[in-house]
Design a protein around this nucleic acid. Structure first.
Lengths: 203, 203
DNA sequence: GTCTATACCTAGATAGAC
DNA sequence: GTCTATCTAGGTATAGAC
């Protein structure tokens, strides 16, 4: 009887856990948190419901892990753009574009992250998630004010407003834009709105 | 055995129902939808849990009634202002002020209406609720565009964005403004942001 | 380690006494 | 009509076989 797991064992377990998280993410993106029962998730992963508890102590823990992974990805991508070099106005525009495009490409996941009813533990994560956007947007707004391209304003408030505005537009049926042209138009209007919101001079 | 209820009976039942709705609204404002069990609501109303079902066929039906009443009040008040006479810019400003002030005066209820986790039936009502704000804001934005005080834009998108922006700011801890001065500042910043968002020339 | 079967808990809903 | 006590369903979590 081994006192330590062999590397192979560890890797296999890790892989099983990853697979479970990935399948759970898909299920959540498709049916939302409320319908993503342990049974449904386990079925998707091809394991028995009870086996889920080999990898996570509770359903909530799994849900939180699913949320964190997906949220971290989105924030990283948007943050990369918002924190890049150059004109704050351009960065804000491109950040909103990236935010929107990714959300429209995976609506189910975006809805799960931004709006879908979730249990309290996940809801708490969501607050953190939105706050990370607040922080990112606030940085750009502050830099823009410092550079004189945005008027004096409460940067934190504008940042929260941007997060809420973008989320509402993307979650709304307005996101009913299906074809590529309509999506492009939606994103163009959305970025224009975001720039107005921060007070960028109208192009 | 009476084939029709007497007027007095009807009135008494109606009153009991109203009382139940009012108490349920208070409970929801205090603890949110998730914690507002039938038992908790019945306790607050001073009746037994089973008696709730004399007035509503299900918990969801009661919850929906609670939501509809409160939502209708808020939309009516804000709509009154947004649809008043005069300058669209001023109306938008005052509409946002009223929205915010009422939300900050009853944070629990505002949170329940705008953001608190709720069951699917209530969530569906919330979409309607937010859409009513969209409609109201869209009207003002369109009138402003027609009057030449707002630049050309997608009015529906701006309206959705305004709803999301205001909601996010008010629900956020940012609404941590406690004293009257801080509240006033918050509202001033919020209205300024809303006007920028619609493209009103900066004052 | 993973499965099957099941225990258990929560909360909504109902039946029958008063 | 209202209350008490109970039933039920849905879904999480666990126990024990393999």
């Amino acid at each position: 009887m081994a006192y330590r797991k062999t590397p192979a064992e560890i890797q296999r377990l890790e892989a099983a856990r990853e697979h479970l998280v990935a399948c759970a993410t898909s299920v959540v993106a498709e049916v939302g948190w409320a319908q993503a029962s342990v049974t449904a998730v386990a079925d998707a992963a091809g394991i028995a419901a009870g086996s889920v508890y080999q990898h996570f102590p509770s359903k909530a823990a799994l849900a939180v892990e699913v949320f964190r992974r997906a949220a971290a990805r989105e924030v990283a991508v948007v943050g990369e753009v918002l924190r890049g070099d150059g004109d704050p106005v351009l960065r804000l525009r491109r950040g909103v574009e990236v935010f929107a495009r990714r959300a429209l490409e995976n609506r189910g996941l975006a809805h799960a992250l931004l709006a879908a009813p979730a249990d309290p533990k996940v809801a708490a994560e969501r607050i953190d998630y939105r706050r990370r956007y607040h922080t990112l947007f606030a940085e750009v707004v502050h830099e823009g004010m410092a550079a004189g391209v945005f008027p004096k304003q409460n940067g934190e408030l504008t940042a929260a407003a941007l997060t809420g505005a973008i989320g509402e537009v993307l979650v709304d049926p307005l996101g009913g834009a299906r074809d590529e042209t309509a999506t492009g138009d939606l994103i163009a209007e959305l970025t224009a709105m975001a720039l107005r919101c921060a007070g960028a001079p109208t192009a």
